[in-house]
Simulated assay, not measured.
Amino acid sequence: MKVERDLHMSRGDGETSYASNSRLQERSILKTRPALHEAVAAARASASLSSAGAMVIADLGCSSGPNTLLVVSEVLGAVAAGRREAELRLVHVQFFLNDLPGNDFNLVFQSLELFRKLAARDKGDSLPPYYVAGLPGSFYTRLFPDRSVHLFHSSYCLMWRSKVPEELARGTVLNEGNIYIWEATPPSVVKLYRKHCQEDFSLFLKLRHKELASNGQMVLSFLGRKSQDVLRGEVSYMWGLLAQALQSLVKEGRVEKETLDSFNLPFYAPSVDEVRDVIRQSEAFDINHIQLFEYNWDPHDDDLDDVVSVFASPGANVAQCIRAVIEPLVARPFGEHILDNLFEIYARNIAGHLRKVKTKYPVIVLSLAARRAPKYQQAINGDCSSLFTRGQFM
């Protein structure tokens, strides 16, 4: 598996595309609006911005579809509101939309003309001058010159790893019948996934810190884990039920067992404590806000209680959503010819699970500020642990 080649959302705007099946991700962006607006204000007020006259915003893992330009709209709205309220001078805004090379950038750019018309209509004279560019590449590599970006945003992306842990990618069967961590996964495999997540996230923070301007900000949201029990977490069940669907096709002779046993997702959903630990160790960022909230598996179920869904097709709704995300990654090793059947079985598995328990995705939201002071000055200023308990937005 080559992550930079194979990991991308389903292209286009058809029935199974990501653009048509990203309602959960839209809700996450709207939920984090307060944190994003605060970060825009902080970046807008930075000393470097006052001399440059332009604010650089990068959306990492932008994907395609309406959510990509929703982030652009939210930032422009925050800049326009700040200008009206504080009578700030005009600032130009440069957006970089980043994702892996397989992303459907064409769909994004084709949507820009209509977006510009709607933005001009809705925001009028308060709309700041803005520019949008695509930037293909992995956010586990350098993307920008030193201290050139004022705000990084990323939504529903940082649970994806740079690669499958090397010990699993070599072909040795260590996680038989599974595609991620689930009930029968050996502790050694859990340790590999956790270690690789820590290394990836640490690298991500190091790279972004170099690229952020003074007073630079980051707003990140990604799937996480509410429980310390990684074997039975909500996301583990999501992938475990897909593994069961693949096992069904193995029994039917439509999928080779060896192919399933050698397939492992480049994915890890960390707990809030695991995230905090990596940030502390990096000594590069202060946490403005940290929060975990939950969304129902079924993207069309907006009820926040724990009552089992009564929707007619919750299994199909969830399977369609996951297919839009995972289809390209699954199609390469298993073949496109099994996809319809695979996700039909997966939908039944999901429906059976949801009849027993209403399950939700835990989403971790982080708002970070780049730390520039030397380590000794941080010690003089007080106990750094207080930085991690400043409170939550909502």
Rank of each mutant, 00 (worst) to 15 (best):
Q217L: 06
R170P: 01
G240D: 11
L90H: 12
F139Y: 15
A19H: 02
L260Q: 10
S64V: 00
Q198L: 09
K251P: 01
Q247E: 14
W182M: 09
Y346P: 06
E26P: 00
V93A: 01
Q217D: 06
K358N: 03
S214H: 15
L260E: 10
M1W: 07
I326L: 15
V173K: 10
I29R: 08
R390G: 13
L127F: 04
F334C: 02
R225Y: 01
Q281S: 14
G171T: 12
Q281Y: 09
A284D: 12
R147F: 13
M218R: 01
S46W: 04
V308G: 04
A47S: 12
F285W: 05
I279Q: 13
I287M: 13
K257C: 11
T172D: 10
P270L: 06
A373W: 03
P66E: 01
A54M: 14
K251A: 12
A243Q: 09
N106S: 12
Y156W: 02
N21R: 02
H8R: 07
S138E: 13
R170W: 04
D302F: 15
G352H: 03
E283P: 03
A43S: 14
S271Q: 11
Y156R: 03
R276E: 14
P129C: 06
I364M: 06
Y130I: 02
V91Y: 11
A45N: 13
Y346I: 02
V108L: 05
A19L: 03
L168H: 06
I290F: 09
D383H: 08
K358T: 02
L207Y: 07
A86P: 04
R121M: 15
L231E: 05
Y268E: 07
N67A: 08
K163L: 00
T141F: 09
Q247Y: 05
A133R: 12
V71P: 03
D273G: 13
G224H: 12
S262W: 00
R332Y: 06
C384V: 14
F152N: 03
S162F: 10
S162I: 07
E183Q: 14
E166M: 07
H92Y: 05
V272K: 12
Q281W: 04
V3R: 11
R142N: 11
L158I: 00
Q228S: 15
N341E: 15
L205F: 01
R142P: 10
D6T: 09
H300P: 04
L151T: 05
K375E: 10
A213L: 11
R89S: 15
Y131M: 07
L168C: 07
K163C: 05
I290C: 09
G134N: 03
H289F: 10
Y130R: 05
L203H: 07
M394V: 12
A319R: 15
M55A: 01
G335F: 09
R23W: 03
V278K: 07
D303T: 12
L174T: 07
S221F: 06
R161M: 14
Q291D: 13
D340V: 04
A80W: 00
A169D: 12
E283S: 11
L97V: 02
P34L: 07
